[in-house]
C-alpha cells in the first residue's frame, strides 16, 4: 500500500471505493428488474437514478474529477457535455412521451 499515495487522490482505497460503489449501483437495478419488487414506474425511476449516480461515481473515482482539483477548461467541457446530454435525452423523452400521450394514453 506504499505507492498507493499518489497525487490527486489516486489511491488504491479510492479505486476500491469506486469499484464497490459501481458494483452496488449495478446490482441494485439488476435486482429490481429481476425480482420485480417495485411497481413499473418506481422501478424505472430507481434504475434511472442508479444510472446517473453510477456516472458520477465513475467521474469521481476513475476519472478523478473534482470541482477544485480539475482545471477549469476541463470542467467546462464536462459541463458542455452534460448540457448536450440533457438536451438529447431530455428532448427525446419529451418528444416520445408527448407522442405516447397523444397516441395511446
Amino acid at each position: 500500500m506504499k505507492r498507493a499515495k499518489a497525487a490527486g487522490g489516486r489511491t488504491l482505497g479510492s479505486y476500491l471505493t469506486g469499484y464497490v460503489l459501481a458494483l452496488v449501483l449495478t446490482a441494485v437495478p439488476f435486482g429490481i428488474a429481476a425480482t420485480g419488487a417495485l411497481s413499473m414506474q418506481s422501478a424505472l425511476i430507481a434504475i434511472g437514478a442508479s444510472a446517473i449516480v453510477q456516472v458520477l461515481v465513475h467521474l469521481r473515482y476513475f476519472l478523478h474529477l473534482g470541482l477544485r482539483s480539475t482545471p477549469q477548461e476541463r470542467l467546462l467541457a464536462i459541463a458542455f457535455t452534460a448540457v448536450l446530454i440533457l438536451i438529447m435525452i431530455g428532448g427525446s423523452l419529451w418528444i416520445m412521451l408527448n407522442l405516447y400521450y397523444r397516441m395511446w394514453a
Binding site: 438529447m88 428532448g91 418528444i95 408527448n98 407522442l99 397523444r102
Partner: peptide, 18 residues
C-alpha cells in the same frame, strides 16, 4: 444546432408545445 432536430418530423404530430 442541437436544439432544432424535431423540425425534420413536425408531421409526426407532436403536441403544439413541442
Amino acid at each position: 444546432s442541437f436544439t432544432v432536430w424535431l423540425h425534420h418530423f413536425f408531421t409526426m404530430g407532436a403536441g403544439a408545445g413541442v
